[in-house]
Structure formats: C-alpha cells, structure tokens
C-alpha cells in the first residue's frame, strides 16, 4: 500500500490542497508596486479570504512577491532572500518591470528579465497592476499549485548552474557564499 502510485496521488492531493489555501507571502517591496500591497491585504480587497497572509521572515514564507523593478544591487538581496526560503517556494513577478524592464528597460542599473535570475511561477502584468490583477495572479498561482505545476523551486535546483552564471554575470563582486540555503 505505501509508496505506490495511488497512495502518493492521495498525498499529493491533500498536500497541494493545503499549500494552495495557505500562502504566506514575503513582499520584497523596493519598487513602486509595494503601494499596491496594502490595499490588496486590507479591507477593500481582503486577500486573507484566500488564505494569503503576510510573513515577516523568509524562513516561514511560501511566496516571494517581487514588486517592481530590481536594481542589480537589490537583486543580490533578493537572491539571498529567495535562497533562504524553504521548499516549496514560489515567486510572483509583479509589474512590467519584472517582465521586460518596463519603463526602466534601458536603465544602466536595473535588470530586465527576472526569470533569467530566479524561477518565476506567475507574472502579473501592468504598471502598476491593480489589486484585482494581483488577486487574479494569486488565484492563478493557486491553480498551478493544485495541478502541481508551480515547480519553480525544483527548476531552480535542477538548473542551478545556469541561474548562478546569469546572476554572477551582473553581480561582479560576489562577496556572499555561493548558496545561501
């Protein structure tokens, strides 16, 4: 009975259900998108009814919410934070800046494509996305989790060399440990 395919399926369903309905988010709010998080969490749009809840430390968080542009300087911190989170973990890229650079696409100091450096599960388009769009993004993430497709953390582990090469290309002075797990 144990460890066969059928019982694993049941466990998967239960664990995906639990993961889906309890998302602790860690908002990396350096960009302007951070201003959209308070209305999403508070009484008007109330993300807590989906089981979404803020978390103060990366150790407890499930979702890393990257709100807006990332300078190379802050990418360093984001990588650190992402690697400190415990599996399974998801990344939501928030706003046009994370998708293709947005209005900062030709800035000397901001990255353009986030998913070359971190595995992004869901992108939310817009500059800035309204709270409705943010909640739609969360619902999309929940769907992916239920289908077992939100496996960015697994992809990151499998392609760690590629990701690290991309990261080290722009962070020239890599003074932190190679992995911050």
């Amino acid at each position: 009975m144990y460890n066969d395919k059928e019982s694993q399926k049941i466990v998967d369903i239960i664990q995906n259900y639990a993961r889906k309905h309890s998302l602790f988010i860690l908002a990396y709010g350096t960009g302007c998108g951070a201003i959209e998080i308070p209305p999403t969490m508070t009484s008007r749009y109330d993300a807590e009814r989906f089981g979404i809840r803020g978390s103060a430390t990366p150790r407890q968080a499930d979702v890393l919410l990257i709100t807006g542009y990332l300078a190379t300087k802050s990418l360093k911190r984001v990588i650190k934070v992402y690697e400190q989170m415990q599996d399974p973990k998801y990344v939501i890229g928030f706003g046009s800046c994370t998708i293709n650079g947005g209005m900062y696409w030709d800035s000397y100091n901001t990255i353009n494509v986030l998913d070359k450096y971190l595995p992004v599960d869901v992108y939310i388009n817009g500059c800035m996305p309204r709270p409705e769009a943010v909640i739609a993004g969360f619902v999309k993430l929940q769907k992916l989790i239920q289908q077992g497709k939100a496996d960015g953390w697994d992809i990151y582990k499998k392609n760690i060399d590629e990701y690290k090469a991309n990261q080290k290309k722009i962070i020239t002075n890599w003074v932190m440990p190679d992995f911050n797990f």
Binding site: I99, Y108, I111, N112, V113, N166, I170
Partner: peptide
C-alpha cells in the same frame, strides 16, 4: 549599448 551587452532582453 550597455544594457544590450549586460542584461537580457525579452
């Protein structure tokens, strides 16, 4: 030019 050289473009 710098951005083209350093960062990825979608």
């Amino acid at each position: 030019e710098f951005v083209k050289k350093t960062y990825f473009n979608r």
